[in-house]
């Protein structure tokens, strides 16, 4: 398709183009604009659960991963108010889990950590909750550490075995919700699938066993450049 067949819209003054039906987050990325996202993975049904991708359209906030671009839409993204909200959201995620980054295998590859750096979180404004959460290490190849889980549902949506969900929500509400693994299915994951499960998790909540610090700290994905810069430095696509 040519530009003419695309929808034209704006993000913070910049004219952008999108395929009909494309979400704001995906379209922004194609236009070299980073909108932070945690629960979103291109190709999976959007969950709209982390809320970090909130943008403002016509004075109303909406999640850019769930909202499709509309012709002529004017999207506010990089504003002081939204960036403050995003920082708040990240802080809430940090204090409501137990994130001890220096001892985490995912440090440097972790999207939560990376977004926190990008929004310059120093010390959260909220008190730490230090919730008591467990680790499920029953399957042979993976473990699930609930202390680090941000309940983004990427594993729930993305990891299946024989067409069945391996991960699911359990419980509800502010104090009982958690991710559970189907132990039968999780135990049958192949090496490759186990690796995929670890990769789909934005944080260090799903880890592949017997594999640690293969890439040293300092040389990991977000150690060299902030999250989003790969999008911002990309050439605008046609």
């Amino acid at each position: 398709m040519k530009k003419a067949e695309k929808i034209t819209f704006k993000i913070d003054e910049k004219t952008c183009y999108a395929w009909p039906g494309q979400s704001i987050v995906d379209a922004a990325r194609d236009n070299g604009i980073y909108i932070p996202s945690l629960c979103h993975v291109e190709g999976l049904k959007p969950a709209g659960s982390c809320r970090i991708c909130n943008v403002t359209v016509n004075g109303r906030n909406m999640t850019a991963c769930t909202a499709p671009v509309g012709e002529g839409m004017v999207v506010e993204n990089d504003t002081p108010e939204l960036n403050e909200l995003r920082k708040t959201i990240v802080e809430v995620l940090f204090v409501s889990g137990n994130h001890f980054c220096p001892s985490c295998e995912k440090s440097g590859n972790c999207e939560l950590q990376a977004v926190a750096y990008r929004y310059q979180m120093m010390v959260p404004q909220f008190p730490y909750e230090f919730p008591v959460k467990g680790v499920d290490a029953r399957p042979d190849l993976i473990l699930h550490d609930r202390n680090r889980c941000i309940m983004c549902k990427r594993c729930v949506r993305g990891i299946e075995k024989d067409g069945k969900a391996v991960f699911s929500f359990e419980g509800r509400g502010g104090e009982h919700l958690q991710i559970s693994m189907d132990i039968d299915l999780a135990s049958q994951l192949s090496e490759e699938e186990a690796f995929e499960a670890m990769e789909i998790c934005p944080v260090g909540a799903i880890l592949k066993k017997e594999r640690g610090f293969a890439i040293p700290i300092g040389e990991r994905k977000f150690d060299k450049a902030p999250i989003g810069s790969e999008i911002e430095n990309s050439v605008e696509q046609d």
């Binding site: 969950a47 709209g48 809320r51 959201i89 809430v92 409501s96 509800r172």
Partner: peptide, 15 residues
Amino acid sequence: ESCGSCGPCRSLNVI
């Protein structure tokens, strides 16, 4: 009663 999906609804109300 929060369904728990949204990070801020799930956790900020506890805070």
